[in-house]
Amino acid sequence: MMGHSVDKEKKEGYLIFRFILIILGCWAAGYFVGRGAAHIPDDYLKLPQRILENGTRFFPFVFAGYNIILALSCFILNYRAKKRLTEWDGVDEDVLDSVDHKLNYPIFLANIAMIMNMFSFPLAIEMTESPVFENGEQEIFMAAVMVILFLGFVWITAVQYTVLKLTRRMNPEKRGSVFQLNFHKIWESSCDEAEKMAMYQAGFRAFKTVSNTCMVLWIVTLTMQLLFQTGIFPVLCVCIIFLAGNISYFVAAMKNESANRR
């Protein structure tokens, strides 16, 4: 019993030592990056601007291209799942599990596309400042971007709608429509204990991933502020996401704790 406690203390000591080493390592890296930032040539500082300028001409094609590829992938995956369900003999219930599993992919790809489009739009606005544009070209560029953005919104909603329709066909107890603003709440209320457990486990994993990503992004935005004078706003955005995640997590945890005590 005593030996167990000594082992535990040794392990704790090692963890504290490792933690201090990591903090010191980060501090040293921050110091050298900060010192190095003062010696970076001006040409290097203009690198992001140059990349933006050179990519401007190709941007609408890239924007449309990845939307077309992702949209086609989603509709093909959805079609295959629908076909499998239509051909189902009504006996082998593993088929339904397989269709359920297959339907996760189009939703995942549609969500990825939505986030990419959300980034591409402000990127396009940034590109309108590019000197590669001649008279009136900016308007054509922006019109093309707006059309792709709108079509992107349409196909993403269509994929979500068709996947949900198929899911409801297999699971008639499920409620909610993609056109409802409180869709997630309604969907959650129609899920049973196993589905809620899976959702909450995934939610906790997402919380951990977002927290780790925020830590990395904080370092990146801080470095960018030092190297490229990107200002305080990117750091502020990262901190707001970090704060929102932590507040919502702890409020929910405390609410659950007090509900369990009652």
């Binding site: 219930e93 339904l96 599990d97 699971n171 899920c191 049973d192 204990e193 196993a194 589905e195």
Partner: peptide
């Protein structure tokens, strides 16, 4: 699932 008030997936998982 309908008899015990749960989904088909949950019965399958159990």
């Amino acid at each position: 699932g309908a008899l015990v008030g749960t989904s088909r997936q949950t019965i399958s998982q159990i």
